Structures are given as structure tokens and as C-alpha cells.
Amino acid sequence: MRITAWISFVLNVAIIATGGTVRLTGSGLGCSDWPVCTPGSLVPTPELGIHGVIEFTNRTISGPLLLAAIAVFVLSWRLRSRTGRRDLRAISAVVLGLVVAQALVGAFVVWFHLNANLVGFHYVASLVLVCVTAAFLVRMYEPPLPRERAVPKGFAITTHITTFVMAITVVFGVLTTGAGPHSGDAAIVRDGFDAELLSHVHAWPGYAALTLTLVLVAWSVARRLRPMRWSLALLAVLVVQILVGVYQARNGLPPVAVGVHMVLASLTAATMTVVVLRLKRPAALAS
């Protein structure tokens, strides 16, 4: 089951990368219909060119993604029957439900011709899936025992505040992208917000999250707390994410940098998820 769970996580990150490629290459309507590519053709026709291939490739990943989610759910169900582990079954059910819902959202994105708000929601749903699959991986490697807090209360509160600030950063990042030039198709109308203003608003909670993460790192290193290694990992990926964000803002939003920024946002959120889960430990492992 471990290999399958890792495949599920990787595919959820990969579909963000391919979805970003669709948007950043103007291939959002490379396939003009759903679930078929065009009326009368399941696959892209030669007339659609490279845009059809890019959009169809993104759709194709949805198949293995769904199969992986089903496989993890079935394996978790069988494991629960043998060991009584309900947590993994519950998380896998959430993943499966979100994968199906995400596919339906993707259909509406096409039917409504890349509505900026729907596209933004589509990305957020993918990011949530990455976080939930990361949570599954964390719990999979821990014994099914009662859990207890493993850090000082103040550290736990600071961690949750950091999570909230990062969520705000993501929301404003989605709004900023929705107002920017990369709509997925040249004819698509954006969401009407001022992209330049939103880019500055998006940066403020990002820097606040960096400051809070530095606090978590210093605190966890000084006290040798359970989330220490993952706090350091969070700091590393967040610093890279901010550097990429600054680079893209100062260089006219080059598509490759924007795509990297999108993928890094999901990995940052996933790492934050692991830090949160490390606030507790199985009771039997308490020192």
C-alpha cells in the first residue's frame, strides 16, 4: 500500500504541473468539450495542434489518479478489517471523493470556457488533495495508537496561525493569477481585479508566513521538538517559493516561473500539513 499511496501523492502534484502547463501555454480550450475532447472525438484531432495534445495530456493523468485513489481506498479498507485502522480508511475516502469532485469541476471549467473563478477553485482543490495525500502518508507510517500533544501549547498555536496565514497567501495568490495574463486562452476574460495590486497584497501574508516559520524553526531547534526536521524543510521550500515569486513578479511573469511557483505552493502546503501532524505523537512513543 505504501507504494500506491506515494504514487497517489506524486500524481496529485503532477496534475498541478500539467494543469499549470495547460494554462500557461494557452491550451485551456485545446479540447473544447468534456468528457470527449471535441464533439465526435474522444482524443484531440490534428486540427487542434499542440494545444489539444497539452490539454488532453492533462486529462489523461486523471485516469491513473482515479485508479490510484481507488486502490488506496480498497487497500485501506482491507487493512482496517485486519487491524482496525479507521484513520487511513477515512483519509483515503476523502481523497477518492475529492478526486471525483475535482474531475467534475474540471468539466465545468471547460463548459464555462475557463471562468477565472472556477479555474482558481480547481487549483485550490488540487492543492487540498496534495495536502490530504500527504496526511495519509504521515499517518501510514505511524502506529494506530491514541495521539497526544508532543509540543508546548504555544508552539502548537503558532503552528496553526502559520497555517492560517499560508492559506491566506494561497487565496490571494489564486486571485492574483486570476487577474493576470495567464488565462489559459487568449480570448478569456479575467476576474476584473487589479493584478498589480493583488500581487503586493499576496506578498504580505507570504512574508508573514516566512517570519512565523522562522519562529517555528528557532523554537523547535532550541527545544528539539518533534516537528523540527519538517519545520526546517518548510523553511527551505518556503524560501525557494518566495524567491521564485519575487523573480516572476520582477520579470514579467514568465510562464515557466509561474508554473514552478504553482507546484511549489502545493509542496509548501503539503510540508505545512506534515508539520501540523507532527504536533502530536502516538501515546506509546511518549518519552
Rank of each mutant, 00 (worst) to 15 (best):
D87P: 08
L96M: 14
V110P: 08
V109Y: 02
R78G: 00
F108Q: 10
R86V: 12
I91Y: 06
V99Y: 02
S76C: 11
F73A: 11
R80L: 06
G106V: 04
R85P: 03
V95E: 02
F108S: 03
R86T: 15
R86I: 13
L96H: 12
R86Q: 13
W111N: 10
L96G: 09
R89E: 15
G84R: 09
R78F: 11
A101D: 01
L88V: 07
A101P: 04
V94G: 02
L104V: 15
A107D: 04
V95M: 10
I70G: 02
S81Q: 15
D87H: 10
T83W: 00
A107S: 14
A90Q: 12
W111H: 14
L96S: 08
S76T: 08
R80C: 12
R86L: 13
I91E: 01
W77P: 00
G97I: 03
S76K: 00
G106Y: 03
D87L: 14
R86Y: 10
S81D: 15
L79K: 10
Q102E: 12
T83C: 01
V95Y: 02
R80S: 14
A107F: 14
A90Y: 10
V94W: 13
V74S: 02
A107K: 13
R82P: 05
V99K: 00
Q102D: 03
V110Q: 04
A71G: 06
L96W: 12
V100I: 15
A107E: 07
W111C: 07
V94F: 12
I70K: 04
L75N: 07
G106S: 04
R82N: 13
R82H: 14
R82V: 14
G84K: 07
Q102S: 06
S92C: 06
R85K: 09
V94S: 07
A71Q: 07
Q102H: 10
A71C: 13
V99W: 04
V72I: 12
L88M: 13
A93S: 15
L98A: 12
S76P: 09
V72T: 10
S76H: 02
L98F: 15
I70W: 06
S76N: 04
A71M: 12
A69L: 08
R85F: 10
V99H: 01
W77N: 03
T83N: 05
L79D: 14
A69W: 09
G97M: 03
L79F: 06
